[in-house]
Write a protein that binds this DNA or RNA. Structure first.
Length: 482
RNA sequence: UCCUGAGUAGCUCAGCCGGUUAGAGCAUCUGACUGUUAAUCAGAGGGUCGCUGGUUCGAGCCCAGCCUCAGGAGCCA
C-alpha cells in the first residue's frame, strides 16, 4: 500500500491528476457520493468523490460519520464549487466502523457543555481541532523563545514537601492505606511511616526550586503541570494546569517585565504565523458566539484583530498606587457602579477593577507593579517605604482583556535579613525552607521571575471563554473523567 | 465555598393556570432523488421529564432535600 498523504498537504498540492492514499475520519457523507474526510492535520476536509453506482451498497452503508477510512484515488481539480481539489476514489477501505446510532458527534453544532462531557471525542470537531493545534504551537513557541535566549529548561519536582509558598491548597500525596492511617501517641497522623517519611503534596509552583537553579545557571525556566486543590468553580481556574516559570539571575523588576512582554508577544506572533487557518476559524466561531450577546457586550475587535493589537502596542505599565488613583477618579466608582467601591490604599483589586483598567481605561494589556506588601507573598523584594510610609513590594501582574491576571511575578528578596524577618512576620517556617535561604547565604544576588498560566494564554489566543475547553482533559472540582 | 439560573428524546429546546395519550427541529432508520457543501423530499422508531421524599383526586409543572451543569464572585495562574 502506498504511503498516506496528510490532508493538509493534499489541499496545498500544486500537482493534480496524481494517485494518492488518504486516511482519516468521516465528518459528513452527502448524497451517497461526497465524503468530507478529516485527519486532524488541518481543519479543512478533503472531499472524496465516490462512484456510488459502481460501489457495493454494503460498503456505502458503512461510510458513516466518525468512521475511519483509507481511500485510494486520484487527486483532481474539483468539479464542484466549495473546494479546489478533491479525490476521486478508486478503492475505499473501512478501517473502523462508527455506529451512527451511537456515535455522539453529529455534523451539526454541539454545545461546549455537551462536548466537555465527551472530551474523548471532541478532538474530532473543528473547534477543538483548532484549539489543540494552537495549544501545541504555543507550547512549542514557549520553548523556542527561551531556547533562543539560552535559558535552561529545568525540571522541578512534581511531588514536594514544601507547602510554604502559600499559593493555595495543595493536594496531599500519600501511600497510606486511608482506612488505616498510622497515628502517633498523641493521635496525629504519623507521616514518618509514609513513603517519603514526611507530609508531601503535589507542587503548587516550581518557583522556589527554579530560584535554586537560577542562582547557578543564571537563566532557567520550568514548563510543567501544577496543582491546586482550591474549590474554584470558574472559567479561569483548573485543579491541574500547566505553568511556565522563568527565573533569571541579575534581572530586576523592569527586566522581568520586558521578558514577560517579549515572551507573550513572541508566542502570539508565532501562533498567528503558524496557525492562520485555525485562528481564522476560531475568529469566525467567536463572531457567531458574540451575535448571541447584546450589542453593548460585544467586542469591537475580532479575535485576529485583538491578537494583532496585542503585538502592535506596548503594554501599559503603572504602579498599584497609580492604578488606585485612576480607579478612585473613574466614572463607575463615582457613580457607585462598582460592587466593591475603591476607597483606600492597601486592599487587593477586585476583578471588576482590573477589567475596568484593561478593557475600559487603557484598552490594552496592563502591567501593574509595586503592590502593597501585605497582600503579596513573602519572597517578593521590599521597596523602601514611600513619603507616606506605605510599604510595597516589587511585584508585577500582567492583566489581559477578557482573561484578567495571566502573569504574576516579582523581583525576589535577595537580602537574607529582610527575607527572614518577613518569613517570621508571615509565619513561614524557616527551618523547612533552609535550602531556599541558603541561596541568600551563599552568593545571593538580584533576581526575578514570573509565572504564566499556560491555559490562560491558550484561552486568550483561541478566544474561548472557558479554561476547561483549552486543556484536553480538564481537572476541576467533582470531575476527573477520562 | 457564596450568589443567580438550568436539568424534558442521541443533540438543541418548547411544554399555558396542576388535568386525558408529553411536542418541535436536527440526528437515526426505511424509501425516493443524485455534483453535494449543515443536501433535499416522504414516512417510521425513539421518553425513568436529574434523584429522593412530600402536597394533591391528579405533578414535567407546586414544596423540601440532594446531585450535576452553566454564568458571576472569592482564591489565583
Amino acid at each position: 500500500m502506498s504511503q498516506r498523504t496528510k490532508i493538509k498537504a493534499l489541499l496545498q498540492s500544486q500537482q493534480t491528476d496524481i494517485d494518492v492514499t488518504v486516511k482519516g475520519w468521516v465528518r459528513a457523507f452527502r448524497s451517497n457520493r461526497f465524503i468530507a474526510l478529516n485527519d486532524g492535520s488541518t481543519n479543512n476536509n478533503i472531499q472524496i468523490v465516490v462512484d456510488f453506482e459502481n460501489t457495493d451498497p454494503a460498503l456505502l452503508k458503512r461510510i458513516t460519520v466518525g468512521a475511519a477510512l483509507s481511500v485510494q484515488g486520484k487527486l483532481i481539480a474539483s468539479l464542484g464549487k466549495g473546494q479546489t481539489v478533491e479525490v476521486v476514489a478508486t478503492d475505499i477501505e473501512i478501517l473502523g466502523d462508527s455506529d451512527p446510532d451511537k456515535y455522539p458527534i453529529q455534523p451539526k453544532k454541539h454545545s461546549l457543555e455537551f462536548l466537555r462531557e465527551n472530551a474523548h471525542l471532541r478532538f474530532r470537531t473543528s473547534t477543538f481541532g483548532s484549539i489543540f493545534r494552537l495549544r501545541n504551537s504555543l507550547a512549542y513557541a514557549v520553548h523556542q523563545f527561551f531556547q533562543e535566549r539560552d535559558f535552561v529548561y529545568l525540571h522541578t519536582p512534581v511531588i514536594t514537601a514544601s507547602d510554604a509558598e502559600g499559593a493555595g491548597e495543595a493536594f496531599h500525596v500519600t501511600n497510606f492505606d486511608l482506612d488505616n492511617i498510622p497515628k502517633t501517641d498523641t493521635g496525629e497522623v504519623d507521616y514518618k511511616q509514609d513513603f517519603f517519611g514526611k507530609s508531601t503534596n503535589l507542587t503548587v509552583s516550581g518557583q522556589l526550586e527554579g530560584e535554586l537553579g537560577a542562582m547557578a545557571l543564571s537563566d532557567v525556566y520550568t514548563f510543567g503541570p501544577t496543582f491546586r486543590a482550591e474549590n474554584s468553580n470558574t472559567t479561569r481556574h483548573l485543579a491541574e494546569f500547566w505553568m511556565i516559570e522563568p527565573e533569571v539571575a541579575f534581572n530586576d523588576l523592569n527586566d522581568n517585565m520586558d521578558l514577560a512582554e517579549d515572551m507573550l508577544k513572541y508566542v502570539i506572533k508565532y501562533a498567528l504565523d503558524k496557525c492562520p487557518e485555525d485562528i481564522e476559524f476560531l475568529t469566525q466561531r467567536l463572531q457567531e458566539e458574540e451575535k448571541q450577546k447584546p450589542q453593548n457586550e460585544r467586542s469591537d475587535m475580532s479575535l485576529v484583530e485583538k491578537l494583532q493589537f496585542c503585538l502592535d502596542n506596548d503594554f501599559e505599565r503603572l504602579t498599584y498606587t497609580e492604578a488606585i488613583e485612576i480607579l478612585k477618579e473613574s466614572t463607575p466608582n463615582k457613580k457607585k457602579k462598582f460592587v466593591y467601591p475603591v476607597e483606600g490604599w492597601g486592599t487587593d483589586l477586585q476583578s471588576e477593577h482590573e477589567r475596568y483598567l484593561v478593557e475600559k481605561h487603557f484598552k490594552k494589556p496592563v502591567i501593574l507593579t509595586d503592590y502593597p506588601k501585605d497582600i503579596k507573598a513573602f519572597y517578593m523584594r521590599q521597596n523602601e517605604p514611600d513619603a507616606q510610609g506605605r510599604e510595597t513590594v516589587r511585584a508585577m501582574d500582567i492583566l489581559f482583556p477578557g482573561i484578567g491576571e495571566i502573569v504574576g511575578g516579582s523581583e525576589r528578596e535577595e537580602r537574607l535579613d529582610r527575607l527572614e524577618k518577613r518569613m517570621d512576620e508571615m509565619g513561614i517556617p524557616k527551618d523547612e525552607l533552609w535550602w531556599y535561604l541558603d541561596t541568600r547565604r551563599f552568593g545571593s544576588c538580584t533576581h526575578a521571575g514570573f509565572g504564566l498560566g499556560f491555559e490562560r494564554l491558550v484561552l486568550f489566543v483561541t478566544g474561548m471563554g472557558n479554561i476547561r475547553d483549552v486543556i484536553p482533559f480538564p481537572r476541576f472540582p467533582k470531575n476527573a473523567e477520562f
